[in-house]
Simulated assay, not measured.
Amino acid sequence: MTSHQTTQTMKPATAAKKLGVYLEATPAEFQEGVVSRAELNALQNDPPQWLQDLRRNGPHPRPVVAAKLGVSIAGLARGGVTEALTTEQIDALKTENPEWLQKERATQAEVRKEAVRIKAKHEQDAARAAERQSDPRA
């Protein structure tokens, strides 16, 4: 009995997300087809010129824009940024440094600081629990 292995494919939107690019900016043949796992791996390992250009210049999808600005995706929306931005537009926003961006960066820094504090607390609690478990007097 032989098993048929089907090729795993994904929609262009999924592939674009995995590649970190804005789907609407990709070539038509990419948008209209399906992408196999092997094709995705090939694009990641040896990106064609169009993919290199998109990653360098954009337009970038919101998760990439948010990361480049150091804010959350929700922070982008609160700041009124709902569209994909180019690298040039992102750099202009960084230079301009509007009040909403300053506020969202501060919020994001607080979120990161709190995440570190919680992680440390969990590690400390786990260490105490392990100590209690190994201590025969407990």
Rank of each mutant, 00 (worst) to 15 (best):
Arg37Val: 03
Ala28Cys: 00
Leu54Tyr: 01
Glu29Gly: 03
Lys68Arg: 15
Arg137Ala: 14
Gly80Glu: 02
Lys11Ala: 12
Asn45Thr: 01
Asn57Tyr: 12
Ala77Val: 04
Pro61Val: 01
Val111Tyr: 10
Ser134Gln: 15
Val116Ala: 13
Asn97Trp: 06
Glu88Ser: 11
Arg62Met: 12
Gly20Tyr: 11
His60Thr: 00
Glu123Lys: 15
Pro12Trp: 04
Gln124Val: 03
Ala28Lys: 11
Thr2Met: 10
Asp91Trp: 04
Ala109Asp: 15
Gly58Lys: 08
Ala129Cys: 03
Glu83Ala: 14
Gly79Lys: 05
Ala15Phe: 07
Thr26Trp: 06
Ala129Ile: 10
Pro63Arg: 00
Gln124Ile: 02
Leu85Cys: 07
Pro59Ala: 02
Pro47Phe: 09
Lys94Glu: 06
Glu110Lys: 15
Glu32Cys: 00
Asp91Glu: 14
Ala129Gly: 08
Thr7Phe: 00
Ser3Leu: 15
Gln44Leu: 06
Glu24Trp: 06
Ser36Lys: 08
Ala16Glu: 02
Gln8Phe: 06
Glu114His: 13
Ala42Phe: 12
Gln124Lys: 13
Ala120Gly: 12
Pro48Tyr: 04
His122Cys: 04
Arg55Ala: 02
Ala115Arg: 15
Leu43Trp: 06
Arg117Gln: 15
Ser134Tyr: 15
Lys121Arg: 15
Asn41Gly: 11
Ala130Glu: 13
Ala127Asp: 14
Thr14Ile: 06
Ala126Trp: 01
Ala67Cys: 06
Gly80Gln: 03
Thr14Glu: 14
Gln124Glu: 15
Pro98Ala: 11
Leu43Asn: 09
Gly20Ile: 09
Ile73Asn: 05
Ala38Ser: 13
Asn97His: 09
Ser3Pro: 05
Asp125Thr: 08
Leu101Glu: 07
Gly58Phe: 11
Gln8Asp: 08
Gln8Ala: 08
Ala66Thr: 07
Asp53Arg: 11
Ala130Arg: 13
Gln102Arg: 08
Glu32Leu: 10
Ala77Glu: 05
Gln133Tyr: 09
Gln31Tyr: 09
Pro27Asn: 02
Ala129Leu: 14
Glu29His: 08
Ser134Gly: 09
Thr9Cys: 10
Pro27Val: 00
